[in-house]
Amino acid sequence: MPRSRPNYAFSRARWSAAQLVVLTLLALAVTALFVRAADNPSDHVPSFVEWTPETIAQASSGDPFRGMLLARHCEHCHGTEGFSDKGSTPNLAAMDRLALWKELEDFRAHKRVAFPMNPIAEDLSHKDMVDLAAYYAKLPIFYDPEDKRVFPRPLPGLAQKNMAWRLVTFGDGERGIPPCQACHGPIAYRPGAPSLMTQNSDYLLAQLEAFAHRTRANDINEPMRTIADLLTDEERLALAAYYGSGLGMQPGSSWPSK
C-alpha cells in the first residue's frame, strides 16, 4: 500500500535553517549590547594602571643594567645621577619603582599630560619602562658636591617648617587631611606613591598646584586631588619647602644643607 508522504521532515529542516538565522542574529544583538555595556566612553579614567599582584610583580621585574643604558636619553634633563639641575624637573634617584613605572605608563597613555614627557614616553616600550624604573630605583642618594643638582634647597623658616612637619606627621584630623607619611613614607607606602624625601621643591609645588587645579588628574581614586585641594596656598608652599630641603629624610640621617 503506497503511503502518502508527510512533509514534516522537510518543514523540520526549514525550521532549523530559520533557527540558525535567528540564533546568529540573537548572538550578535546580545554581543553588541554587552560590548556597549562594557565600556562607557564618557567615563573619566584617571589611569589604566590597576595595582593587581600581577601588575606589581611585572613592574618590579625590570633589568637595571638595561635601564642604565636607556637612561642615557634621560640624563640631559634628569641628571647623570638622577638628580636634576633644574628645580622644575623631578629627581628620579631612588624613586619608588612602581611609582616611576606608573608615571611613564600614564605619560604614554596621555593620562598625565606634561611636556616633554609625553612624546618621550611614547617612544619607550613597556619593557623599557620597567627597566628604567629598576635602574632609577637603584640609584643612591649620596650627596656629591661636584655636580650641579638643586637638591637640597636651603632650610625653610621655623614657622613654615612646623606647619609642614605637622601635616607630614599628623595631617589635619579636623579637615580630614591624612598625614603625608602614611602614603609617601617612611611610615607606610602606598603602591604608586613616590617617596618625596629627595624631590625638588619647585617641582613639588607645581605638582600640588596641578592636583588642586585638577590639571594633573592621574591619581587613582583621587587621593592627591582631594588633599591638594584641602591644603591652603601657604601649606602647599611649606610642604614643598620642607621636602625640598631634605627635611623629609628619616630623623637620624644627617643631610648636609647648602
Binding site: V45, P46, E50, W51, T52, N221, E222
Partner: peptide
C-alpha cells in the same frame, strides 16, 4: 576593589 577607577559604578564621574 583594584579596578574601581577603570569601569563600572564607581568611576570618578559617577
Amino acid at each position: 576593589p583594584l579596578a574601581l577607577h577603570v569601569s563600572g559604578e564607581f568611576v570618578e564621574n559617577n
